[in-house]
Amino acid sequence: MKLTIQRLASLTAQDRIDLAKVWPEMDIVQLEAQLSETQRLYAARFNDRLLAALQLSISGTQGKIFNLNVREVTRRRGVGQYLLVETIAQNGALTDWWIADDGDADRGVRAAFMQACGFRAQADGWVK
């Protein structure tokens, strides 16, 4: 089965289990309650399981990405980059992108990943 990137407007029971593995510290029920046209959730799905996810906040033509994370057992396989690239492609009306410098990857790994995706560092995150 192919890896697909999906915007999730509501979550199944399995989605909640999978997201708890992507974000162990996050309150998934609260996250789902906040979803709207301006507060979005995108995830990478493979064989009916979520492997990675990010949150997208939209304000005008600016997209702000938070909590970009890939399940540890799936890292270093291009899933995070595909998730990021496809999320940007699916939101073509947005022209300015900022990504929070958050997540559980170490700073060196995150910097290499963000630069490979075409982003440049700022004091509080990454811009494109």
Rank of each mutant, 00 (worst) to 15 (best):
G108K: 02
N67G: 06
K64F: 15
D15F: 02
T87V: 09
A53C: 09
I88F: 04
F119A: 01
Y42S: 04
G78H: 13
D96R: 13
W97V: 05
T87G: 10
L56V: 09
A53P: 07
R40Y: 01
L83P: 01
E25D: 11
I58G: 01
E25C: 04
N47C: 14
G78Y: 05
G80D: 02
A44P: 07
D124N: 07
S59H: 09
A121H: 00
P24G: 14
D15V: 01
E86Y: 08
L68H: 08
I99E: 00
V109A: 07
A116D: 06
R75V: 03
A20G: 14
I58D: 00
L54Q: 05
A53T: 09
A112W: 06
Q62I: 11
I99R: 03
L83W: 07
Q90E: 12
S57Y: 11
A111K: 11
G125R: 07
Q34M: 09
Q122K: 04
M1T: 11
F119N: 00
T95L: 15
D18R: 04
T87K: 13
N91R: 11
Q34W: 06
R120A: 07
Q62N: 03
R110L: 15
M26L: 12
Y82E: 05
A105V: 12
A100Y: 01
T38D: 10
V127W: 01
Q14L: 03
D124C: 02
T95Y: 14
T87F: 07
M114H: 06
M114Y: 03
Y82S: 13
R76N: 12
L56S: 05
R76P: 04
R76T: 04
L19V: 02
Q6N: 15
R77K: 14
Q39T: 11
Y42M: 09
G125L: 10
S57C: 14
Y42R: 10
N91F: 07
I88C: 06
K21V: 02
I65L: 11
T38M: 12
A112G: 13
A89R: 08
L31I: 13
D124S: 10
R110V: 10
L31Y: 09
K21P: 02
A13G: 14
F113H: 09
R49Y: 06
I58Y: 02
I58C: 04
T38F: 05
A20L: 08
W97T: 01
G118F: 15
I65E: 00
N47Q: 11
A9H: 09
W98K: 00
I17V: 15
T74H: 15
N47V: 10
G108V: 02
L35M: 11
